[in-house]
Design a protein around this nucleic acid. Structure first.
Length: 567
RNA sequence: CGGGGCGUAGCGCAGUCUGGUAGCGCGGUAGCUUUGGGAGCUAUAGGUCGGGGGUUCAAAUCCCUCCGCCCCGACCA
């Protein structure tokens, strides 16, 4: 019997100062978590109960998909990370420590190296493949900026899985199995997710999908097509072809114009009394030590991931002022592609065929107008370099893309053989020939998923838990605990519910009814069963659905069955 | 790391500009009343005013410095 009076459920009437988004506020107010420091949280009994339910769903679906649960250490010797070169890549996100022998260890931010090392030692034959290993474990990342409670924490619980296959086709099958398992997991958690094409980032690999929970508080931008299933993370999203940008002055010769004080796109556009879209934004980047002139429409933002990819660069950064002046021969703010030689240029596709545009003259306080790409910049290299945005055409069907924000709760990657080659995860085929295993990796942010559920399912009164992961499914609220018959009836019903396999919390506190009702709404358990003197006098108890707010009376005998049907 | 904000009782805040007995609401404890949507009255406990240094007869308040937290940005699996 779980009695509130014996629990630790410290609810708060007011929202703590340092919580900004609804899910974070509610987790604190409903007594699920407490903060220890930035990005560090204690799970209180109720929060832990919900977390365990998410974990159980994840475990069941991973097992069902044939993955094998293991548990790897959170502490790793530095050398393992150096073997793949990722010590450098992830240097800044890893917590580093020394043991008493001054050996260097890191707290694991992820486990590709560790699991691949295991497979390298234990698997040697095609007969042992495919295999998929997973764990549910605490990860550590020295986040630049922890945020929003569990949404981005320094320490968080992740389910990570790693598949190993004989070849790429087989790996696709493993990938699909995980993809399908993820769909079921999030469905069972009561989450509506949007699956988007994603960038593989520091993970490497060929393709990946992210499972996003649409929410204004989400940290990731994404676009989805109104007319077809296309959806992608903004980091990756492409756009369909737009008509060439043609403005007034298209037929006229280029002309250099004095533009005193107009330096930014907005200032220049204002000077010419036109829109930023007419500007050819010219940025100087340095890619692997080589300066590059990057051109884009003035109202678009450069997507550095796309740019890096298009250039085939490994390092990319905006040039500093000195480099810009050296390349353009002018102060910052007046760069342009016209009559500039000796520097590599790349332009966004949307500038192809543009006419009547305005750009910098590579002279202080001067710009050039009537630029016609085909005539004035005939030898440009084009690539997709800018972020897609709301209203752009869909790259698949030409429909309209809508921009949204989302919380990334799951991510699946096809990794290829990057890790298996470097760490020697090789197997022998039936002809005795050695091959690296083809890998995939699959993550679910378990703690983040829990918070995402609340972000997606709450109202002005509190949390609205999906039944599957609610800390308890039913709250038996005894209105006047001092009234003997009420208490007896409450305990009896709670016992009956529990024998029916339903999790029950009994609010037996000696508090005013209104106070307890408010707390019940805040906690948001799916069903509230109120036992009070008045209704007992009529021989009934009250059953209320948290989500719909509908309530109805039930006699003792039918209460359990009625509740069971609501869950 | 850049920009902004904050740090005063468990929580939410006032007081800081203009130095002079540390406050309010909620919460806690005890009692009485109340009891179907965050009750009322009374009493009571609870503070290194984030830390350190300085100025001053006197510092929550002014100065220096450090720390922590939140937001925006950059960055990130």
């Amino acid at each position: 019997m779980n009695r509130w009076s014996k629990q630790l459920i410290p609810t708060l009437k007011e929202s703590p100062q340092d919580a900004e988004i609804p899910s974070h506020q509610l987790m604190l107010r409903a007594g699920l978590i407490r903060k220890l420091g930035g990005g560090l949280y204690t799970f209180l009994p109720l929060g832990l109960k919900a977390l365990r339910k998410v974990e159980r769903i994840v475990r069941e679906e991973m097992d069902r998909a044939g993955a094998l649960e293991i548990l790897m250490p959170a502490l790793h010797p530095r050398e393992v990370w150096e073997r793949t070169g990722r010590y450098e890549v992830l240097r800044d996100v890893m917590f580093k420590i020394q043991d008493r022998q001054d050996r260097e260890l890191v707290l694991g931010p992820t486990h590709e190296e560790i699991v691949t090392d295991l497979v390298a030692r234990e698997i040697s034959s095609y007969k042992q493949l495919p295999r998929n290993f997973y764990q549910i474990q605490t990860k550590f990342r020295d986040e630049i900026r922890p945020r929003f409670g569990l949404m981005r924490a320094k320490e968080f619980i992740m389910k990570d899985a790693y598949s190993f296959d004989v070849d790429s086709d087989a790996a696709d099958v493993s990938y699909k199995a995980m993809y399908d398992a993820y769909v079921r997991i999030f469905e069972r958690c009561g989450l509506r997710t949007k699956i988007v094409e994603a960038d593989t980032g520091a993970m490497g690999g060929s393709s990946s999908h992210e499972f996003m929970v649409l929410a204004d508080a989400g940290e990731d931008g994404l676009v989805e097509c109104e007319d077809c299933p296309y959806a992608a993370n903004l980091e990756r999203a492409e756009t369909g072809k737009l008509p060439p940008l043609v403005f007034d002055g298209a037929e006229e010769e280029v002309e250099t114009v004095d533009t005193p004080g107009a330096r930014t796109i907005a200032e220049v556009a204002e000077f010419f009394a036109t829109s930023p879209a007419r500007m050819i934004k010219t940025l100087v980047y340095v890619a692997d030590d080589e300066p590059i002139l990057v051109l884009a429409p003035g109202d678009r933002d450069i997507n550095e991931i796309k740019l890096t990819r298009a250039l085939g660069a490994s390092e990319l950064a905006l040039a500093d002022d000195a480099v810009i002046e050296q390349v353009t021969g002018a102060p910052v703010g007046f760069a342009g592609p016209i009559e500039l030689s000796g520097v590599r240029m790349i332009a966004d596709e949307k500038l192809r065929g543009c006419q009547g545009c305005i750009t910098g003259a590579n002279q202080a306080d001067r710009h050039i107008k009537n630029v016609n790409q085909a005539r004035d910049l005939p030898n440009l290299t084009f690539a997709d370099l800018v972020f897609a945005r709301d209203g752009d055409p869909c790259p698949r069907c030409g429909g309209t893309l809508r921009q949204k924000r989302g919380i990334e709760v799951g991510h699946v990657f096809k990794l290829g053989t990057k890790y298996s080659e470097k760490l020697g995860a090789l197997y022998l085929d039936e002809h005795g020939k050695q091959h690296p295993a083809v890998m995939g990796c699959y993550g679910i942010g378990v703690t983040r998923t829990l918070q995402a559920v609340i972000e997606q399912s709450h109202d002005s009164d509190g949390i609205v838990w999906p039944s599957a992961i609610a800390p308890f499914q039913v709250e038996v609220l005894i209105i006047t605990p001092k009234h003997g018959p009420s208490m007896e009836m409450g305990l009896e019903l709670a016992a009956a519910l529990e024998s029916a396999g339903i999790d029950v919390l009994i609010d037996d506190r000696d508090e005013r009814p209104g106070f307890k009702f408010k707390d019940a709404d805040l906690l948001g358990l799916p069903v509230r069963l109120s036992v009070g003197e008045k209704s007992l006098a009529r021989g009934v108890v009250e059953i209320r659905n948290r989500r719909t707010g509908e309530s109805s009376d039930a006699v003792r005998e039918e209460a359990v069955e009625k509740i069971r049907q609501m869950l």
